[in-house]
Nucleic acid binder design. Structure first.
Lengths: 337, 337
DNA sequence: ATGAAAGCGCTAACAG
DNA sequence: CTGTTAGCGCTTTCAT
């Protein structure tokens, strides 16, 4: 049944045409110094004439290296596209890799069959992988770390493994800082809409929130758990309002959720920041276009992507790199606090 | 310098452990019928114990097939993420492929080095590719069609090639239909904000617009050319207004641009649909959340992605498929016309 | 500086 | 049903 694939010219063909051995062609292709200019020209011409491109599978088999890395997003397609954070990280990684010999291949891990992705990764298709948005329940990638160089974006929840490389912001201090802004505003009944508690970033942000409160001698007015989507922010805020809880400040763990929460508050006739002071994390389109614009902690996902890629490449090349890279964040004061 | 990669167990190792030949292991791995249950169990156990995963490069080299296909987006990362159309197509393709043995690998073609992507594609990394959003200037992919099964999303501009497989809507009739809605409203001074004229879809939509007008005995009030982004829609609409052109209807070639245009009209104090009737193409978040919600032609990008994938797989398997697949569209009447 | 030869890990006839 | 034997296209010692 299989259609005869148009045969690509092989290295051997190039060798014949150039009148040299396959070894020499290989040397030229790989930019080895030790080739006579004369032979080199002949080979290059043959390559051009035949429109030759080396077969990657063969090369990869021979040298045990693929020159490709994967960016794995263990999240469904809809969420992936809805969250500007992913876009930025991908962009940063892609940009960094553009100047290297490496290809970036984006793997949206299908919820239906996560094993498919791991098998692909372990099947020698890539030299390493960047893993994003790692839910705790999902141990598949953490375990993979022993077999393939991995770099995580955001801390993973597994603690029993060493040799886990991660690039992240300090989520605890970020949340703490954001919460302090509210406290400094004089607010005392402060709630939070936290992120999914199976992710490291969410846990840390909740910790930071609690710490800030504790240091000011306060108790949380309420703690709700969302899933980082605007809808969950909206729904939880409405719940909070409907519950009759008395609050005058809220730290929301992501700009997307804060965006939704703001709408719910507007619907409920709550003024921001007069009635409620709100701060959040992420300086994306949601933060900037919210009404009012959100006071927030900017991380720099684009830079994060680039750094992740850089570290992975270094690991692949056997250079030693620190296990943790903590990125700076920035407090952006806008109108919502 | 290269770090010793942790050696994955090979098929040979499995064979030894199971006490059979490599061929038998291969048979089991590939699900051949003709293996004694007994041997099969032994092999399966060995595989489990060794945590064996076949090396793809080797397999692919041996059987001349990779079981991976690429989805190529010749567009920069920012545009890719900003346009819900891409998200939907990817989603559709990913979903379809989830039930097959094929991996989907997303290639954001870097503007800096398009040759890198083509080389990757030709290097035998994938069995075929889906190509999206094809600008005319870019012949690289059309030419690739001779060497690798390709399926395009949206018609390509190259006319000299046969064997070009494309999945698309009928852009001419879609635009015509959208324009007719405006005409039926009794409007006579109708302008258009078209898409980039180096893309087939844009050209066709302009053609459909012009045809509808011609059949009603009308001339375009104005023809502006945007780039499918909301910003371009905004800017062009402001230009149109500032130019003093007299118009009471406008067909905008994409919902993103229409979204921007609507804002500009609101700024200019133009009422929609009282003063100006507007229709567009795409039923995405922009169309639905615009003020007022947009009357539009819905294409079904998710289905398009799935169909593209389906056709590509069939081609890879040597089945014969039609070169053109035209998808249905749907007129959605909302408040803007 | 170059060629010969031995694989990389797997699959695919071909015997048996 | 199973093992033997060739490769797939490329890289890489090792000689020369």
């Amino acid at each position: 049944m299989s259609e005869p694939r148009k045969q690509q010219p092989t290295l051997e063909l190039v060798a014949e045409r150039a009148g040299v051995s396959r070894a020499t062609v290989s040397r030229v292709v790989n930019g080895s110094e030790k080739v006579k200019p004369e032979a080199m020209r002949a080979v290059e011409q043959a390559i051009r004439e035949l429109n030759y491109v080396p077969n990657r599978a063969a090369r990869s088999l021979a040298q045990g290296r693929t020159n490709a890395i994967a960016l794995v997003v263990p999240e469904n397609t809809a969420k992936f596209f809805a969250d500007p954070y992913f876009a930025k990280v991908v962009q940063g990684a892609a940009q960094y890799l553009a100047d290297t010999e490496f290809m970036l291949s984006l793997l949206l891990s299908t919820e239906s069959d996560p094993g498919k992705t791991t098998r692909y990764l372990r099947g020698g298709n890539v030299d390493g992988a960047l893993v994003l948005s790692h839910h705790a329940a999902d141990r598949s990638y953490a375990d993979l770390g022993g077999q393939l160089p991995l770099v995580f974006g955001g801390r993973t929840m597994s603690t029993d493994q060493s040799e886990i490389f991660v690039v992240d912001i300090d989520n605890i201090s970020a949340a703490k800082q954001a919460t302090e802004v509210i406290i400094e505003r004089g607010r005392r009944r402060i709630a939070t809409i936290a992120g999914p508690q199976d992710m490291g970033a969410s846990l840390d942000r909740l910790t930071g929130f609690t710490q800030a409160l504790a240091e000011a001698g306060l108790e949380p007015a309420a703690v709700l758990e969302g899933d980082f989507t605007p809808d969950s922010g909206h729904d939880l805020m409405r719940q909070l309002v409907d519950s009759g809880t008395d609050f005058d400040g809220v730290f929301v763990a992501s700009a997307q959720m804060a965006f939704g929460a703001l709408q719910a508050m507007a619907d409920a006739g709550l003024g921001v920041p007069q009635d409620v002071s709100v701060t959040t994390v992420d300086d994306d389109a949601f933060a900037r276009n919210a009404t009012p614009p959100l006071t927030t902690i900017a991380q720099h996902p684009e830079r994060q992507g680039a750094i992740m890629a850089e570290i992975l490449i270094k690991r692949i090349n056997g250079e030693s790199v620190p296990e943790w890279s903590i990125m700076d964040t920035e407090l952006i004061l806008r109108a919502s606090h």
